[in-house]
Measured scan of single mutants.
Amino acid sequence: TTYYDVLGVKPNATQEELKKAYRKLALKYHPDKNPNEGEKFKQISQAYEVLSDAKKRELYDKGGE
């Protein structure tokens, strides 16, 4: 599973699309609303952290993490 899959976006997604997808999923899986989905929330946050940063995203796209 790639970070793009976690957020449900395509690899060519814009920053705005990433932000929108992250917010939607973060609300859905937030531990306050969904106590059993803490791990999913962490995955979503990690994916967004990497993909929202241009340098980290470039490194990730080249095969790094």
Rank of each mutant, 00 (worst) to 15 (best):
L25R: 03
R57G: 03
A47C: 02
K19S: 14
A13Y: 04
E16L: 09
R57W: 02
P35T: 08
N12K: 05
Q15E: 10
Y3D: 01
E16M: 08
D53I: 04
D5C: 07
H30R: 09
V6G: 01
N34S: 09
E17K: 04
S45F: 11
P35R: 08
H30K: 06
A13I: 05
P35H: 08
G63M: 15
G38S: 14
D53H: 05
E17D: 11
K24N: 13
A26M: 15
D53N: 07
E49Q: 08
T2F: 09
A54K: 12
Y4H: 03
N12A: 06
Y4W: 04
T2L: 09
G8H: 06
K28D: 09
G38V: 15
K28C: 08
N36E: 13
K40C: 10
V50Q: 04
K20N: 14
G38M: 15
L7V: 01
E39T: 06
E37D: 12
A54S: 09
L18D: 00
E49V: 05
L18W: 00
K19F: 14
G8C: 07
K40H: 11
E17A: 06
Y48W: 10
D53K: 04
A21W: 02
K33L: 15
F41H: 04
K42V: 08
K62T: 09
V9S: 02
E65T: 14
L27Y: 12
G38E: 13
T2S: 13
D61N: 05
D61L: 03
K28W: 06
L25C: 05
R57I: 02
D61I: 02
A47G: 01
K20F: 09
L59S: 11
L59Q: 13
Y48F: 11
N12V: 04
K40N: 08
E37W: 12
H30F: 06
G38T: 14
K19V: 13
E39D: 12
E49W: 11
K42P: 03
K33N: 15
K33E: 10
T1V: 11
Q15T: 10
K42D: 08
K56N: 08
P31M: 06
D32E: 11
L59G: 06
D32L: 13
D32N: 12
A13M: 02
E16W: 09
N36A: 13
Y3K: 02
Q46N: 10
I44K: 00
Y29M: 04
A26C: 14
E58T: 06
V9D: 00
V50P: 00
A54C: 10
K20G: 07
N36F: 11
V50D: 03
V9Y: 00
D53W: 02
Y22V: 02
L25P: 00
A26D: 03
A21E: 04
E49I: 08
E58M: 08
K28Y: 09
Y48L: 03
K33F: 15
V50A: 06
F41G: 02
K10M: 12
L51F: 01
L25N: 02
L7K: 00
N34M: 08
G8D: 05
K42E: 10
Q46R: 11
K20R: 12
N12E: 09
K42H: 11
Y29P: 01
R57D: 03
A21H: 03
K24Y: 11
Y48P: 00
N12G: 08
G38Q: 13
G8M: 07
D61H: 03
G63V: 11
L59P: 03
Q43D: 07
L7S: 00
E58A: 11
K40Q: 07
E17L: 05
F41K: 02
T2Q: 07
T1E: 11
E39G: 09
D5P: 01
E65K: 11
T14P: 04
N34G: 08
D53P: 01
K56E: 08
G63P: 07
Y4T: 01
P31Q: 07
N34V: 07
A54W: 09
K19H: 13
L18C: 03
K10A: 13
G38P: 11
R23E: 15
L7Y: 00
A13F: 06
P31F: 06
G8N: 08
R23A: 15
V6Q: 05
L18A: 01
R57A: 02
T2G: 06
K10H: 12
E39C: 10
Q46K: 14
P11N: 07
K55A: 14
P11H: 11
N12S: 10
L27G: 10
Y3I: 04
Q46S: 07
Y29E: 02
T1W: 13
D53S: 06
V9F: 00
K55F: 10
K24I: 13
Y4A: 01
L51G: 00
L27I: 12
Y4C: 01
N12D: 14
F41C: 05
L7A: 00
L7P: 00
A13K: 00
L27S: 13
Q43P: 03
L51Q: 00
A26I: 10
K28A: 09
K42S: 07
Y29T: 04
R57L: 03
L59F: 09
R23P: 00
S45W: 13
N36R: 09
K19E: 15
T1C: 15
E17S: 05
K10I: 04
E65Q: 12
L51N: 00
R23G: 11
F41D: 01
Y29I: 05
P31K: 06
H30G: 13
G64R: 14
S45V: 15
K28Q: 15
K40I: 12
Q15S: 11
Y3P: 05
D32H: 10
F41N: 02
Q46M: 13
Y3T: 01
F41W: 15
R23N: 15
P31E: 07
G63C: 14
K10F: 08
